[in-house]
Computed example of a mutant assay.
Amino acid sequence: MKKISIIVPCYNEEEALPFFYPVAHEVLEKLPDDYELIFVNDGSKDKTLEILRDLAAKDPHVFYISFSRNFGKEAAMYAGFVNASGDYVAVMDADLQDPPALLPEMIKILDSGEYDSVATRREDRKGEPPVRSWFARKFYQIINKISDADVVDGARDFRLMKRDMVDAIVEMSEYNRFSKGIFGWVGFKTYWLPYENVERVAGESKWNFWKLLKYAIDGIINFSLVPLNLSSWMGFFMTGVSFIMLIVIVLRKLIKGDPVAGWASLICVVIFIGGLVMLSLGVMGQYLAKIYMESKRRPHYISSESNIKDVKKID
């Protein structure tokens, strides 16, 4: 008999958990396999932890890890991967935007032996603001062109993986994590399961436009050197342009003997070049910041409470 591990990151999901647990429990109880539900409380400020304690007391299949503060969804997923003991491991959100009803079909696909992972993707973006949808599509197009990460448009974190793939993900213990990219980078054969977009069952999304933008920038920097290469090529190009303009100015002075006119245009050029320099320094600064954080070797998360006997963590 196989064991299925379900990892559920939670941040202020007090309103959603009373809806999520009965639905997930009903689906999992109908499976012929053993299972465990691992809830990771990511420093919630509401009654999420109290609800998880109550669920764990009533259901022996429920386990929880509570962080000492908010470490982010990436850390929560990693904590789940490290502590999951199942032969198949899934990640899903507590807001029911990742339908538990898809689990039996996902398990069936993995049981066929042809695939190592079943990942979900939304067929549409109904309910999303048009601007946000446009930026999301462009992000997927850009990151697939400039990196080794294979990220499908509309991909969700909701996926079911075999143990070998989960172990490979755990071995990638980098502090700056972008799981969508990691899932693609480790390889393994993935089946993409489309489904229609589902609205949150309760509560509000924790992701606003600026958080998503930062997430996208982190993903690009974590999996691509193209921004650094672009900075280098911009510097090379502007140096060449400056050298050519210097020759033009000297020749004009020697041939015509008149001073160079156009102080306004000169200031514009100086500001433009200065902006490119600052942009390049900013890009390099982002990479240096990532290296700096990795060099600290800080833990991905700190567990303040859990009903798992020996909570594992990898520094």
Rank of each mutant, 00 (worst) to 15 (best):
I6E: 01
I7C: 06
V8C: 11
E13N: 08
E13D: 13
E13M: 11
E15F: 02
L17D: 02
P18V: 08
F19W: 13
V23N: 10
V23D: 06
E26N: 15
L28W: 03
L37F: 15
L37V: 13
S44N: 10
S44D: 02
S44K: 13
D46F: 08
D46C: 12
L49K: 13
E50R: 06
A56I: 06
K58R: 15
D59M: 11
D59E: 07
V62W: 02
F63M: 03
Y64W: 02
Y64R: 07
S66D: 04
F71C: 07
E74T: 12
G80V: 03
G86Y: 04
Y88F: 15
D93L: 06
D93E: 12
D93Y: 12
A94Q: 01
Q97G: 10
L102F: 09
M106F: 07
I109W: 02
L110H: 05
D111F: 01
D111T: 01
Y115R: 08
Y115K: 12
V118G: 03
T120P: 10
R121P: 02
D124G: 13
K126V: 11
P130C: 05
V131F: 13
R132V: 06
R132T: 03
W134I: 02
A136D: 07
K138R: 15
F139W: 14
Y140F: 15
I143E: 00
I143R: 11
K145G: 03
I146Y: 05
R156T: 13
F158M: 14
L160T: 03
R163K: 15
A168I: 04
I169A: 11
V170G: 09
E174A: 11
G181I: 04
I182T: 13
V186C: 05
K189V: 03
Y191G: 04
W192C: 01
E196Q: 15
V198A: 08
E199M: 13
R200G: 00
G203C: 06
E204L: 12
F209R: 09
K214W: 03
A216H: 13
A216I: 07
D218S: 12
I220H: 04
P227F: 02
G235E: 08
F236K: 15
F236M: 13
T239N: 13
V241Y: 08
V241S: 01
V241A: 09
I244E: 01
M245Q: 12
L246P: 05
I247W: 01
V250M: 08
K253T: 00
K253L: 14
G257N: 10
D258E: 15
V260I: 14
S265M: 11
C268W: 11
F272V: 09
F272L: 14
M278N: 03
S280P: 06
G282Y: 05
M284C: 10
Y287V: 06
A289Q: 10
Y292F: 14
S295Y: 04
S295M: 14
R297L: 02
P299N: 00
P299G: 01
Y301S: 05
Y301W: 08
I302V: 14
S306H: 07
N307E: 00
